[in-house]
């Protein structure tokens, strides 16, 4: 169990952890939960037999598992609301000037709300796009959909978000 495939586990971990953490955190809105789900994903990875042959495939597999775990968590516990509120109450620190920060907080809160309201299919694709550093092809591999499909979903997610923000007015880039 020291190695999974021809590469050391440490390598997989360092490559995938930041992505898994961000994806899970964006879906669950809870850092501790995200940590637990990441741990669960890696444990499943280590217990997997036969091991996954390449580093990239391992990364896609892990992202897919943590995404499913996170979505299931949110659904099962019906915590969507709670997670969002927690997220909203503790805005993350942003190193920016004060005026910038005020403006940022406003639109950030609305954006989070908007992201929350997106249908799951669109939300997941946009989260993967913005927080995982994966390109369309790789996102397609994670979600087992075509590259073209990723392109369409990313666009629709953005479009919906902008519509939501426009409806509430004030959103002037």
């Amino acid at each position: 169990m020291e190695k999974q495939g021809p590469y050391p586990f440490r390598e997989v971990y360092e490559l995938a952890f930041p992505i898994l953490m961000r994806v899970s955190f964006r879906i669950t809105g809870d850092r501790e939960v995200a940590e637990e789900l990441c741990q669960e994903a890696f444990i499943r990875f280590l217990n997997r037999y036969p091991p996954i042959p390449t580093l990239d495939q391992s990364k896609y597999w892990l992202i897919r598992v943590v995404k499913n775990l996170s979505l299931n968590f949110v659904k099962r516990k019906g915590r969507e609301r709670k997670a969002f509120e927690k997220f909203g109450r503790e805005p993350m620190k942003v190193q920016e000037s004060v005026e910038d920060c005020l403006l940022r907080k406003e639109s950030a809160a609305r954006l989070r709300e908007g992201l929350e309201q997106l249908p799951e299919k669109l939300k997941v694709v946009l989260i993967l796009k913005e927080y995982s550093g994966l390109n369309y092809r790789e996102i397609g591999k994670v979600l087992k959909i075509s590259e073209g499909n990723v392109k369409v979903r990313v666009f629709r997610a953005r479009n919906r978000l902008q519509e939501l923000l426009d409806e509430e007015g004030e959103y002037v880039p």
Binding site: Y13, P18, R22, F25, E35, I43, L115, R158, Q162
Partner: peptide, 30 residues
Amino acid sequence: LSCLEELRRVLLAEDIPGIEESSVTVWQAI
């Protein structure tokens, strides 16, 4: 395009603080 940029900027403005810390915690647990 500037709308898209603004969207991304806002989404990325709030990274999880201390992701390194989490990384260590989870690594130890595993």
